[in-house]
């Protein structure tokens, strides 16, 4: 199902990735009101189609709709899942617990089951099909037009999207303060990468939430992840540990990040990062 502006374009993309039928509605209510219109649409489609499994991405908007829908249908729900398989008449999914320290195997007992899959859990593979697009026959009632999105403010001005970057350079407390984050941006520019951050520095207001990597932020899976001044709390590492290569720069040799990095450098980030930027530029120009 694709709802709101751009639903038809999304349907075509979904078709290329294997969807057979996509139900669409471009009613502006789906963009203008939080959760309730989409919950109505899904509940009404559920009544018609009676699927065994309803899948969502574990994204902020989806999880709100999924929660309301589960309560309305009385459905079993598995959130933040890494995968899902059919087993013994139900569905079982692997779910990270305690910020990723443990993995629980959870079973949804009833039908329908609602499962939310963590972004980046699967590689998106385009198979080149075409989906049948069905117009959703749903009228959003005024009773569901309550939490009104009156204004949208874009704060991020990232050149490279964090989730799509081949290289991510993230900073934590060890950067010393927001005044030093431009050092990471300069390195990111030199490498064609994006800048991320730990939750600690986002909560401290050094950088916007849009840069946060981890359990409560974005999940990334770049070719190279450079963690600068980040200790490596589970909360953070669950969002980046599937990166192909991890490089950590930290003054503390005992930091948890050092135990998962392919290369750990113990030293002063504020000296190493500018020197690295200069070396990268020199290599590119030479």
């Amino acid at each position: 199902m694709a709802l709101g502006a751009g639903a038809k374009t999304a349907a075509s993309t979904l078709g290329k990735h294997g969807a057979k039928v996509v139900h669409v509605s471009e009613d502006s209510a789906f963009d203008d009101y939080v959760a309730e219109p989409a919950t109505d649409a899904l509940a009404s489609l559920y009544e018609k189609e009676k699927p065994d499994l309803i899948l969502f991405g574990f994204t902020p908007d989806s999880r709100e709709v999924a929660g309301r829908l589960a309560a309305r249908l009385g459905a079993g729900l598995i959130s933040n899942a890494l995968d899902v398989v059919a087993k013994d008449g139900g569905f079982v999914a692997q779910v990270p617990y305690f910020g990723g320290a443990k993995v629980a195997s959870m079973k949804a007992n009833g039908k329908p089951a609602i499962v939310l899959i963590r972004p980046k859990s699967f590689e998106a593979s385009a198979k080149g099909g075409t989906a049948e697009v069905k117009q959703l026959d749903v009228k959003v009632g005024d009773g569901s037009k309550r939490a009104h999105i009156a204004e949208r403010v874009v704060e991020a001005s990232e050149k490279v999207k964090l989730e799509e970057a081949r290289i991510v350079i993230s900073g934590g407390r060890g950067m010393g303060g927001p005044q030093n984050f431009p050092l990471l941006e300069e390195l990111a520019n030199a490498l064609g990468g994006a800048v991320g951050a730990s939750r600690a520095v986002v909560d401290a207001g050094w950088v916007p939430y849009s840069m946060q990597v981890g359990q409560t932020g974005k999940s990334v899976r770049p070719g190279v992840y450079i963690a600068v001044g980040i200790s490596g709390a589970m909360q953070h590492t669950v969002g980046m540990k599937t990166s192909k290569i991890i490089i950590a720069i930290n003054k503390d040799a005992e930091a948890p990040i050092m135990k998962m990095a392919d290369l750990g450098v113990v030293g002063d980030a504020l000296k190493i990062v500018p020197a690295l930027t200069a070396a990268v530029k020199a290599k590119k120009n030479g």
Binding site: A70, G74, A75, G76, L77, I78, V92, P96, Y97, G100, A101, K102, V103, A104, S105, M106, K107, A108, N109, G110, K241, I246, A253, M258, K259, M260, A261, D262, L263, G264, V265, V266, G267, D268, K271, I272
Partner: peptide, 23 residues
């Protein structure tokens, strides 16, 4: 009846530590 049940819990797979160098 609980809507979901936990069938088991395991430690998350740890990444292997690589090389750590002093700058």
């Amino acid at each position: 009846q609980p809507a979901e049940t936990i069938e088991g819990v395991v430690e998350a797979e740890a990444r292997k530590a690589g090389e750590v160098i002093e700058d």
